[in-house]
């Protein structure tokens, strides 16, 4: 076990847009020989106490870090992967002492659960799914949704974990006969699930019955749009999409996120808000995360940008730190912190 030196500062991040909106809380380095691929914050129970822990993933190792009193981080568990590299962490809300990871080369080939045995606290991994996995997402109420296969040979499945991560239940959702790109939860409606497909449709499921309720075709202006989150309000669905393939236009610059309003009854939709980069910033969406009404993205320029979807504008820009581009951005699942990562294993934790 190693204790990594962390630094605490009361200086706000170098943010010319809104100084102070992102404040550096702590940082640490994951000393690994392979490329850092993901970071996440989860609750983990040790000695009958639940702690907010950080999970870091490199291509060949996933580590769990617990907080020490001095805002340092101690590595307490490590899972090794020698055959298939790690692609992403898949947090499952409401489950303690379990984290899922997606493994593969370019595409996901396996989903594994990482946990510790109750007796000697030794690390274990359990294969949950294997195949041509196109999308996976952890949902509230200890559920994990995944889609395996493409077009007509697609299986969409919900797996439900016990509270301790143990025994699980499985249920199928009706497949849409279109390859699913991503899933998104609907805030305010726990039994609804959205997915975006390769032909620019948004599909809506009833998670209780497995029914496919509606397909909504969205504007073809941006190909391969990816859904991140949705909100159900007053009979309408407000959907946050990202546009990784969007070309920059002279009018709007580069659209990174879009808030779309859908009437699920009529399958009509209207664009409500286009989140573009502020003047002076360039780049396209590389990866991002949305929590509540705040959206964060890493741009191809190596900068992180944050938008408040209620205010309707960019609230913070975080330039590369220590002359190194950002490659990861995640909202903490345990508090209002932003986790920003670099390829060499540096993780910076900001308070928003």
């Amino acid at each position: 076990h190693s204790i990594e030196q962390t630094e605490i500062t009361d200086l706000p991040a170098r943010d010319s847009l809104n100084p102070g909106s992102l404040q550096l809380v702590s940082k640490f380095k994951n000393p690994s020989s392979s490329c850092s691929v993901d970071v996440s914050a989860v609750w983990w129970e040790r000695a009958a106490a639940k702690e907010p822990c950080i999970i870091t993933a490199c291509e060949d190792v996933v580590s769990l870090w617990k907080p020490l009193d001095t805002l340092q981080w101690e590595k307490v568990h490590t899972w090794h992967f020698t055959e298939v590299p790690v692609l992403q962490i898949v947090p499952v809300p409401d489950v303690y002492n379990l984290i899922c990871v997606a493994l593969g080369n370019l595409e996901i080939r396996e989903i594994r659960a990482l946990l510790c045995s109750s007796g000697d606290e030794s690390e274990k991994q359990v294969l949950l799914k294997s195949g041509n996995i196109k999308a996976v997402l952890g949902l509230t109420k200890r559920r994990l949704v995944s889609s395996i296969g493409t077009f007509c040979n697609q299986q969409v499945q919900i797996m439900t974990f016990a509270e301790d991560g143990g025994s699980k239940d499985e249920q199928l959702l009706m497949p849409p006969d279109e390859t699913i790109l991503a899933f998104a939860e609907v805030q305010g409606m726990q039994d609804a699930l959205l997915g975006t497909t390769t032909v620019n449709n948004i599909v809506i499921w009833n998670l209780k019955t497995g029914q496919l309720l509606k397909k909504v075709h969205i504007d073809d202006s941006y190909q391969a749009s990816v859904c991140h989150r949705a909100y159900s309000e007053m009979g309408l669905l407000f959907v946050v999409l990202s546009h990784p393939c969007a070309k920059e236009s002279q009018v709007f610059g580069s659209p990174v996120f879009q808030l779309l309003v859908i009437n699920p009854k009529t399958a009509q939709s209207v664009g409500m808000l286009l989140c573009c980069l502020p003047p002076g910033q360039t780049g396209r969406f590389l990866e991002g995360d949305v929590k509540d009404h705040i959206a964060a993205a890493v741009l191809t320029s190596g900068t992180i940008a944050v938008w408040d979807l209620l205010l309707g504008h960019c609230t913070a820009v975080l330039p590369p730190a220590s002359d190194q581009s950002w490659s990861l951005v995640k909202w903490s699942g345990t508090d209002s912190h932003l986790l920003a990562g670099q390829k060499d294993g540096n993780v910076f934790i900001y308070r928003y």
Partner: peptide, 23 residues
């Protein structure tokens, strides 16, 4: 955003679509 473009809105859309969709 022009909600008129979206057609008639139902607060119970989830239940209504669930009763109409194939099981």
């Amino acid at each position: 955003c022009r909600t008129a473009d979206l057609g008639p809105i139902s607060l119970n859309w989830f239940e209504e679509l669930s009763s109409e969709a194939p099981p």
